[in-house]
Amino acid sequence: MSSLWEYANPQKFMGLSGRMLPWTAALSSLCLTTGLIWGFFFTPDDFRQGSTVRIIYLHVPAAMMAINAWVMMLVASLVWLIRRHHVSALAAKAAAPVGLIFTLIALVTGALWGQPMWGTWWAWDPRLTSFLILTLFYFGYIALWSAIEDPDTAADLTGVLCIVGSVFAVLSRYAVNFWNQGLHQGASLSLDRQENISDVFWFPLLVCIAGFVLLFVALVLLRTRTEIRARRLSALLARERMG
């Protein structure tokens, strides 16, 4: 019967992802266009932060997805190491550069926001520092993938690195908190949202977050499809060489 694991079969995955890709891509652009236009042009200025507050429509979703992408890579790595589903390993590989770009977007928009608000482009604030460290983890992970030729060996080793790296990333987060208490405002989002931001900012932000999630899904699907094709091609070439 049909189960989620069926989509671990590369061919099934190609079929499903091929059908999903246009929809997620279209929905993502719709959400991002709506959310960003709404956020940038149809919300009032914040009483303290003025117009600069609008950068949250890029900053917050990118920062969320930077972390979620790593979590997705962790889950995919575990699935590969435990159940040996190739699609899972390739999805983890595909997600890494996307996560890295989201991390960089979060850092850059943060710097642009920090300049007017705190008077400095960069501060060794715990959140900023943690994101910088997360960038290093992404670099290491991507570098290890590209350094190893055999795809299964690379998938195994990067999987192990992802698990160990996740533990150390969480540890670093606490260490950095301990090290410096920081300037950064509290989370923009929480269940008890009355504490944080008002509805006028909240709804366009939600739309932008949805847009970023869909963008991530679309990019990962696209990149995973490419990885599957590349993997298949290299297998065919390897066999041809061996005669």
Binding site: L136, F137, G140, F168
Partner: peptide
Amino acid sequence: LLSLLVLPLYVPTLIFGAE
């Protein structure tokens, strides 16, 4: 590559040690 992989993992040790 080894340095690139290991240095981020050294962060917590460094922070607590120097602290």
